[in-house]
């Protein structure tokens, strides 16, 4: 079963999956690069973003794609507040201690968020019923919804790219990720940048959540397993590397898609994790990690 349309289908499926993975992983990677925190609550932010777009869609009838204009700024603020009250207090601790504290704090936050959400919104599966007719090109059909989602992800990625390249804060973020001490020496205000980073990271997760609500399904307890996946992606790409998380996401998405077709979907996560661990063994700092 190696025919052109099928391969193309699988590539599109894999890229889409990888794109959604990459978008949120991107945020997690930024956060790690700047604040040196393993943010276990990242997946829960994604879940909250998904629920918010669901809420806006079902109670106010807003098209989920437009709801991004509400979600992005709102979760930017949420991220900043999260950083200010939960991460800032441990920023000054010695490295190992800060790592331990960050696990406790963000895992605690994650449990709290999930439980509160299930209490207030109920634990049933939710999702946005929104679809577009498939595009039929010749013999095979492509999901037009997926192409649209891919387009939006591409736009968001480009925006982030230019933000990081062209603005002062963006450059500061990159500087801190690459050379923390150097950035401090030239007078970069780390705590302010860290707050902005959390804002950006959280809003990318929330945006990915919107795509989850359209394409898949949402439950209050989906956060932590997703975080595990995102952590895997950024380790694969190299902690703190942005290109890395993009490539990592795509590798994972494509691996899952192709394994799913040729070996059976049952094996796709297993193979994906095997690939991850193999890459780590040969490149202990990930594909694009900084030595």
């Amino acid at each position: 079963m190696i025919s052109f349309p099928i391969i193309l289908q699988l590539i599109i499926g894999g890229i889409l999956l990888g794109g959604i993975y990459a978008l949120a992983a991107f945020g997690l990677s930024l956060i790690f690069g700047v604040s040196r925190v393993l943010n276990i609550a990242h997946g829960d932010m994604l879940m909250l973003g998904a629920l918010m777009s669901y809420g806006v869609f079902s109670f106010m009838g807003v098209n989920p794609f437009y709801s991004l204009f509400i979600i992005l700024p709102f979760f930017f603020a949420v991220g900043m507040v999260f950083e200010r009250f939960l991460i800032r207090p441990i920023a000054g601790r010695p490295h190992h201690e800060a790592l331990v504290a960050s696990v406790l704090i963000t895992l605690g936050a994650s449990l709290t968020i999930a439980d509160l959400t299930s209490f207030f919104t109920g634990a049933d599966v939710k999702g946005i019923s929104y679809s577009l007719p498939p595009l039929n090109i010749g013999l095979f059909s492509v999901s037009s919804l997926r192409l649209l989602v891919l387009g939006v992800i591409l736009v968001l990625t480009l925006c982030l790219h230019f933000y990081l390249r062209r603005t002062f804060t963006g450059m500061a973020i990159r500087a801190i990720t690459q050379e923390r001490e150097g950035a401090m020496l030239v007078g970069v205000n780390i705590s302010r940048v860290s707050m902005v980073t959390f804002g950006i990271g959280t809003s990318t997760a929330a945006a990915a959540g919107m795509f989850f609500a359209i394409l898949f399904a949402v439950t209050p307890f989906m956060g932590i397993p997703l975080t595990v996946k995102y952590l895997a992606i950024i380790v694969l790409g190299g902690l703190g590397s942005l290109v890395g998380s993009l490539v990592g996401g795509l590798i994972l998405g494509l691996t899952e898609s192709f394994t799913g077709f040729y070996l059976g979907t049952q094996w796709s996560p297993t193979v994906a994790f095997l690939v991850l661990i193999l890459i780590l063994l040969f490149r202990p700092r990930g594909l694009f990690g900084i030595e």
Binding site: F258, G260, T265
Partner: peptide
């Protein structure tokens, strides 16, 4: 086919 619980992408199937 038996597929994993956390499957997100059904393209292959």
């Amino acid at each position: 086919e038996i597929a994993p619980s956390d499957i997100r992408d059904f393209t292959p199937i």
